[in-house]
Design a binder for these strands. Sequence first.
DNA 1: CATGGTTCTGCCAATGATTCGCAAATTATA
DNA 2: TATAATTTGCGAATCATTGGCAGAACCATG
Lengths: 127, 127
Amino acid sequence: MCAEYATRPREQIAQILRSERRYLSAAEVFRALQRARARVSLSTVYRTLDRLRAKGEASSRIDEQGEATYVICTTSHHHHAICRVCGHVEEVACDPMERFTEALKAYHGFELDAHAMEFFGRCARCR
Amino acid sequence: MCAEYATRPREQIAQILRSERRYLSAAEVFRALQRARARVSLSTVYRTLDRLRAKGEASSRIDEQGEATYVICTTSHHHHAICRVCGHVEEVACDPMERFTEALKAYHGFELDAHAMEFFGRCARCR
DNA sequence: CATGGTTCTGCCAATGATTCGCAAATTATA
DNA sequence: TATAATTTGCGAATCATTGGCAGAACCATG
Ligand SMILES: [Zn+2]
Ligand SMILES: [Zn+2]
Ligand SMILES: [Zn+2]
Ligand SMILES: [Zn+2]
C-alpha cells in the first residue's frame, strides 16, 4: 500500500506549473488545462496542487482575494519575491535571518523555530 | 456624508481585541462578545474587523485552516512573532531589511517596495 | 497479455466562511 | 424632538474548497 502512481493528469498539471513561473490558483490551472485540450477535473487539480505542496515541490500562498495559489519551488529553504507587474516569482536565499533570530531572543525573549517572508516589487524585466 | 460614528458594537469589538493580544477570528471575537453579554451580530464583527484593518489599526493573517484572523497593532511598520503555544503576538522592529533590499537589487535585479514577514516559536513566558 | 489489488479520477453534493441586500435601529446635530 | 447620515441585524446568496463514492487507470505478477 501507499504506492505512488505517475498519471497523465498529474503530469499535465505539473507541466503547467513548470511553464508558468508565478503563483496560480486552482481555477487558473484548470483554465490552462482546458486551453491545452487536457481533460482534467477541477477536483483533481485541487488534489494535485495540495499533494505537490505536501511533498514540498510547490509553495502556496493566499492571494488578495483569499484564494490559494501555488508555484513550483526548486531550492529548499528560501523566500519569494513577487513582481507586482507580471507576477514573476524569484526565489530568494535567506542569509541575513540570523540577525532576526538573535534580536528576537535577546530583546523579546522569543525563541524562533520558523519564519515566513514575502517580498513585493518589480522584477528585472518589468523595471 | 462619509462621517464616522462611534458606536457601542465597535467599541465592544475593539475592547476584545485590545484585551487579547493574539490573532482572533471573527467567530472567536463573536463568541467572546457573547460571553461578555454584548449583543453584536456576526456581520458587524466581520465589518468592524475589516474596517480596523483598512484603517491600519489591526493586522490580519490567514491561519492554518484558512480563516482570517486579526490582532491590534500599535507601532507602525513592524512584523509579528507568534507563539506556537499561547498564540501571543510580539511586535518586532524591522531593521535588518536593508540587507535583503540590497541583495535583491544587486543579485536578482528586483526592486523592492514592500515585504511581509512572520516569525514562529515560543514566547518568553512559554519557554 | 489477462488478473487483481491498489491508487486515482470524475462527478456532484455538501460545507462553511464571508459577503450582500435591505429595512429597522442608532448616532450626531440642531 | 425632528432630520439626515450611518450602522446594524437578519437571512439569503456566494463561492472556493472538500467529501463520498463508483468507475477508470495504473502496475506488478504469472
Ligand atoms: Zn515582472
Ligand atoms: Zn528563511
Ligand atoms: Zn507563548
Ligand atoms: Zn519590515
